[in-house]
Design a protein around this nucleic acid. Sequence first.
DNA 1: GCAACGATTTGACTTATGTCACGAGCGATG
DNA 2: CATCGCTCGTGACATAAGTCAAATCGTTGC
Lengths: 326, 326
Amino acid sequence: MPIRNTDQIMHKAAWLYYSHGLRQDEVAQKLEISRASVATYLRRARETGIVNITTSTELFTDDVLARELEDATGVTAAWIVPEDRQAMDPTAEMPVLAASAFLELINKGDRVGVAWGRTVYHIADVMPFADLRGVTVVQLCGNLGAPYSYRPDQCTTEIARRLNAEGINFYAPLVLSSERLAEELRGEPVIREQLSTIADCHLALYSVGGIEDDSHLVKCGALSASEMHRMGEEGAVGVIAGQLIDGDGQWINCAHNRRCISADLDSIRAISKRMLVVQEDSKFEPLMAALKGGFASHLVVTTSMARRVMDRWRRDGLGKVHAATA
Amino acid sequence: MPIRNTDQIMHKAAWLYYSHGLRQDEVAQKLEISRASVATYLRRARETGIVNITTSTELFTDDVLARELEDATGVTAAWIVPEDRQAMDPTAEMPVLAASAFLELINKGDRVGVAWGRTVYHIADVMPFADLRGVTVVQLCGNLGAPYSYRPDQCTTEIARRLNAEGINFYAPLVLSSERLAEELRGEPVIREQLSTIADCHLALYSVGGIEDDSHLVKCGALSASEMHRMGEEGAVGVIAGQLIDGDGQWINCAHNRRCISADLDSIRAISKRMLVVQEDSKFEPLMAALKGGFASHLVVTTSMARRVMDRWRRDGLGKVHAATA
DNA sequence: GCAACGATTTGACTTATGTCACGAGCGATG
DNA sequence: CATCGCTCGTGACATAAGTCAAATCGTTGC
């Protein structure tokens, strides 16, 4: 990418304004352009990630409930979205919080994995712009066109774009019609190579899906409602990166899972920072399964969900979730 | 540190304003306080590091000269402060740049070492506020009261304060009157322990001192002008962390150095990211010595200084500086 | 060579933000 | 319990920043 002259001037303006604290008119004078242009450049500088404005998410981790949740379940950090009257709408708040928290967890040079779903897409949509060259964003699961266009590759791409990071997509369908084909495709060098690098990620971002008739997998047509129903009877409780898990968070050896091209669940568990974001109250059971399965080292949930998890965890006398094997 | 209620509200205001993009009056309405208060809280949030605004320093590394300097000398990265008419005063610019660049190099959980001098103090003085809990800032050299109150411990403390990091000072004088006493003091557990952790730093910040009559060591009274003069005749060329180095950047076995309580030069060389900042044009020879001695992996200099280094480096057919042993 | 287009820049205006003197609240002190 | 001294919050004003239609610039295609 050639360095355009306008980039230079935008960068200079941003530098003088943000790093030296000059006023816009002073910057304009120094650069011999109009103040209006300075304002425009500054906006672009923010949108480009040349200027980063981040707010500590401490507010949401600094909470007795968060501490309790961490202590009880063994997650490394929990962010709790409050639901009191003074707060914002939790549904709007959570993606913003998750995006900020996610950003805080990224280090220079990291490889980060991004999965798929409504939640992840919303996070991508409010992800702050940042200057994270050297970071690589990899797609955790195969593609699937979704009704509201939340395709896995779009999530990855959008996040990579905002972070000025490199995005690595892989172009395989999430589910294939036959196990044989899925197996063959997984064996393809391009695909196999990509899947094998997933365990090298330093950080992953995903939600957990439900298995109701209105679950994402069903709405996207990966599974019919009746198939999903049957899977539920056979022990499926939630969905991680497109794959069904049982109540203990274990991979289910079923037709759907065998037909799936997605990150191996053990690879995901091997990632040291696994950020799980759960918005809907209805995802309580899937969340419990994901927690038990060790899919969360970093958790973003609402106050009420946190309380429910605590209650259940205590009632069942569960221990701490196992840490990443990495 | 107890969590004050005002911190909470400041944090909320910052969150709504910066992360959600609400206007100040909207924030005021939501928090049921006046807009004026919101403005105040936001300023404090910026000053506290709850809100971080950073500008990429790419502008200064994105330069043919910087590339050449890196290629020739082997430093990992170079920041070049331009001296053209459109630019700011280089003397004012450099500390701001160095501070930003330094901040960019810090990772979560790092231990960073900070040395001493006018330059370092100026950098401390313009260091942006950040939320780097978990980072430790350690003092690299013993204390010495300076005419303009640039004491080593002040540099460390100020930087730690701004970063919200932990500052670790060590209270020993930089120079003692006898070698015996210096030796004994270095052997004291408190001191020895601190000095031994220096090699564990991930990042260090320092300048290189000159040996003129108006050099810092002389002005602070660590050495008389005549002593310094004599040291110059015996091969001293510059000063790193209070210690004299020769033209090749090697420690000189002289009375002053033996009387010094400071970071062992090999410990400094063992730090993987060594940021050297040189403001004054007069420090060319000291800079060359520091470079040859392997004291810079990251370099901040003016355009003219960069050119001089390039010229000399080529003329003398020098190779790349050796990397950190760590 | 010139018309047509998109991108950039600007002046003039609107809106948002920063500031400061003042007053309310509150804990410490005699 | 009155008074002091402090911090915190506010209204009103001054100042800075955002916006947008119109002008300008530079490129491309004919």
